[in-house]
Each structure stands twice: as structure tokens, then as C-alpha cells.
Design a protein around this nucleic acid. Structure first.
Length: 386
DNA sequence: ATGTCC
């Protein structure tokens, strides 16, 4: 554990070098959250940034308690990586962009049989949010075609059966309105208080939470499938990892509940740490059983915001027109019909992913397998005004 | 983050 592990208090650590910029408010929120009853240890990741009361980009280990409000509304949010059959060197950006016209509309009737089958297979019975299945949503969610740009570990790539000559599809989305509704109903009943295993609501919440996690996984699957269909390609899932959830975990022999709020698991195999749409993403292999105590078996879930959402239009509009933001410095294309979203998620609003990766390398938490370059990032349909 | 808000 090197210079990029900071011990803030006995129970609060931060995986970041002194040179990595982290907003003071985020550290404050991390320390405040560490004071919650039953909270045993918390760990900020290098992408730590302020949230609504609780910071994003952190893991929280509590004993005999879970905090639904800490998990937040986007239960099961995560990253899925799909291998496609599209040859990277044959990509025509205009054609690709054109093919993706309607991929954010609700899935049409042709999908209903597949939806029913897959829901049953994944033990999902709720149907209130079927309309949202296969949709990306807003915020930092996206689906992005990527090309493998640099290979650092051939063997790992082979193990994952990734074809470096073909495009990958990275999907970042969650449980949409379903997770939101579960949180809202819980807050209405119990506020921000934690739940103990003896509480009636504990089991109820966890049951709904676990279903929302599976729903979010299925959502990413349908997003990938419809994208593949739209561009007339085939593909298969390589990995799917949730970074927003609470799960039982034993850390150094202590049983508890690990809350991950924008924190990628380091105990679920290979993961992708995405950069902003104008930056590289990294396929990494977590180092087994390393830094459990300080990192809580977690990693950054992305490059991390540098600027607050609402600030971005004001900071960028005088410098960049909408049209200029439809392409990036790496030559990739952006489809985003929502102006606010276009500015809020601009590459300038995020830290450089390389620094986040560097911090985790310094801490001995990961090995880098490959660097992925963005080709086309889809945020939301391209035809709405604001 | 949000079938986003009256």
C-alpha cells in the first residue's frame, strides 16, 4: 500500500494520492457518513465526489445495519461489457450514428416474449417498470462503442475471450424508475434511518433491492441487445458488475453489510473503469485479497466528476457550441438529444481517468489489462430540443 | 439518479 492510501481517521480511508483533486465537501460527507450508527469502516475511492448528503465513489461497511438511503435510488446501477462482431477498422461513424436512431424508445412488441422469458429466468416478477426495460436513462448513464486501443495483458484478454480487432460495447445503466420507487417508499416509511436484521422492513427492503439489482442487470442486457440489433451485429456479454448496492460481506473475519455507492467491487473478477466520453476507459483485473482493510474490496466506478452537474452549461457554453460537443478530442462521436445532459456530461466536467487508474495502481489494488478508446457514445435519443 | 415537475 503506497502513497495513494490516505488514512483520514481510524475508520475513514481514501484511495487517492495527494495530487488527485477531491472536493472538500465530498471528504466531509465521507466523514459524516462514517459517524452513522453501526458504521464500522468507510473508504473513499479516487473518483469520490459530493452527492445529496452522502458522497459518491465510496464503500461503507456497517455491522448489523443497512442504510437504504445510502444505497440511494439507482439500486443495481453498474457496467456491462459486451463483445461485438463489428470489426473496429471498418467502422463508419455516420452510418453507426444513423442506425442508432430509436434505441432509447420503449422496446416494441417484438420483444415481449424475450422479456417474459428473461424476467422469469432472472426471477423478476415486478412488471410496473417494463416500459423502461432496455432504456439507458439520464445522468451519467450511457452506452458506448469502444475499440481496444492498448493491450497490457494478452493472457487476460484471451481468458475473457475478447477479440481486440472487434468493437466492444460498454453499457452503464441501472434500475431506472424501479429503484427510485423502492427508495421513495422506504424513505416515506422509515426516513434515513438504518435497518437491523430483526426489523420487519429489513427483509422487505432487501428482497426489493435484490430484485432491482437483477432488473438493472437485465436492463443492461436489453440495452446491449437492441444496440446490437440496430447496428446489425451479434455479440455476447463479457462482464456485468454492479457498483450501487448493499450486500453481505465478511471483511477480516468480521461479518457485516457492505454498501457500495459508486464503488466497483474488487471481488467479482475483471471490471471496466470508464473514463468520460472524451477519455479512455480501462479494463482492469483487481488484485485478489489486497487492501481489504483500507479499500473495502472496492474500486473507483469511473473518472469522477470535477464540476457539479448544474455548473457545466455556464462554464462551457461560451466556449463550446452544442455541435462542438457532438465529437470529442479522441475523435469519437456523441449522440445526446438533451442539451443539459450534453453539457453536464462533457469530458471537461470529469477528471482524467488515467489519474484514477494511477492511484489504484499505486495502492496495489489493480492490474491494467487493456485501454479502451471511445468510438461512439450514446446518451439519449438525438431528436429532442432541450 | 428519476415514466425527472407544479
Amino acid at each position: 500500500m503506497g502513497r495513494s492510501v490516505q488514512k483520514i481517521t481510524d475508520s475513514v480511508s481514501l484511495i487517492a494520492s495527494k495530487g488527485t483533486w477531491i472536493e472538500g465537501l465530498a471528504i466531509q460527507q465521507l466523514e459524516t457518513t462514517a459517524q452513522l450508527p453501526g458504521m464500522y469502516k468507510v473508504a473513499g475511492m479516487p473518483d469520490l465526489h459530493p452527492g445529496r448528503g452522502y458522497p459518491i465513489g465510496a464503500a461503507f461497511f456497517a455491522i448489523n445495519k443497512i442504510y437504504p438511503a445510502l444505497v440511494g435510488n439507482d439500486i443495481g446501477c453498474g457496467m456491462a461489457l459486451w463483445q461485438t462482431t463489428l470489426a473496429s477498422n471498418r467502422v463508419k461513424l455516420d452510418k453507426l450514428a444513423k442506425q442508432l436512431g430509436n434505441v432509447e424508445q420503449p422496446l416494441d412488441e417484438c420483444w415481449s416474449e424475450t422479456i417474459a422469458e428473461r424476467k422469469q429466468a432472472k426471477d423478476i416478477s415486478i412488471d410496473t417498470y417494463d416500459m423502461a426495460l432496455g432504456t439507458i436513462g439520464g445522468g451519467n448513464h450511457f452506452a458506448e462503442f469502444q475499440a481496444i486501443d492498448t493491450i497490457y495483458d494478452e493472457q487476460a484478454l484471451a481468458e475473457l475471450e475478447l477479440n481486440p480487432k472487434h468493437l466492444q460495447l460498454l453499457v452503464h445503466s441501472g434500475s431506472r424508475g424501479l429503484g427510485q420507487s423502492i427508495l421513495v417508499e422506504h424513505i416515506r416509511q422509515r426516513g434515513h434511518n438504518g435497518l437491523e436484521p430483526d426489523d420487519r422492513e429489513f427483509k422487505e427492503y432487501l428482497k426489493q433491492h435484490d430484485e432491482a439489482v437483477r432488473w438493472a442487470e437485465l436492463n443492461r442486457e436489453f440495452i446491449a441487445l437492441r444496440f446490437l440489433e440496430a447496428v446489425k451485429a451479434k455479440g455476447h456479454s463479457v462482464l456485468d458488475v454492479n457498483h450501487n448496492l448493499v450486500s453481505p460481506k465478511t471483511l477480516n473475519g468480521v461479518e457485516g453489510w457492505l454498501h457500495r455507492k459508486g464503488a466497483t467491487p474488487a471481488d467479482k473478477g475483471y471490471v471496466v473503469i470508464p473514463g468520460s466520453r472524451g477519455d479512455y476507459s480501462y479494463l482492469v483485473k483487481p488484485v485478489a485479497n489486497h487492501g481489504e482493510e483500507r479499500s473495502l474490496c472496492s474500486l473507483a466506478h469511473g473518472a469522477g466528476r470535477k464540476w457539479k452537474r448544474g455548473d457545466c452549461h455556464g462554464r462551457l457554453a461560451h466556449k463550446f457550441s452544442r455541435e462542438e460537443l457532438y465529437s470529442t478530442a479522441l475523435g469519437s462521436r456523441v449522440i445526446c438529444g438533451n442539451k443539459t445532459l450534453l453539457y453536464d456530461e462533457a469530458p471537461q466536467a470529469y477528471k482524467k481517468c488515467e489519474t484514477i487508474i494511477g492511484d489504484m495502481l499505486d495502492a496495489g489494488l489493480i492490474r491494467v489489462v487493456a485501454r479502451l478508446k471511445p468510438i461512439l457514445t450514446f446518451k439519449t435519443h438525438g431528436d429532442c430540443g432541450s
